[in-house]
């Protein structure tokens, strides 16, 4: 289960990461954000940037040509 969802399909790097970061900052520590990302550049870059910010990726599911991530706010 997630507390919030952000669909970033069609959103370019690094805007997708910035949107994820802003969304996470509005949430409470421990809450789960579901992030939907395109394959290619977004999935290559956004997860590592999320990790670098100190958040935890707790689940990753591939669905066709996009990914559904669950991120726990630090």
């Amino acid at each position: 289960m997630s507390d919030s969802t952000i669909d970033l399909r069609g959103v370019m790097c690094p805007i997708n990461f910035v949107k994820t970061k802003l969304k996470l900052e509005m949430m409470e520590p421990g809450e789960i954000l579901e992030v939907i990302l395109d394959s290619g550049d977004p999935i290559q870059n956004v997860p590592k940037s999320i990790k670098e910010e100190g958040h935890k990726i707790v689940e990753v599911k591939k669905e066709g040509d996009f990914f559904r991530l669950k991120v726990q706010r630090s």
Partner: peptide
């Protein structure tokens, strides 16, 4: 490893 496949996507 949870088999999430991100690494294979991340590898350029």
């Amino acid at each position: 490893c949870t088999g999430c496949t991100i690494c294979s996507e991340a590898c350029k």
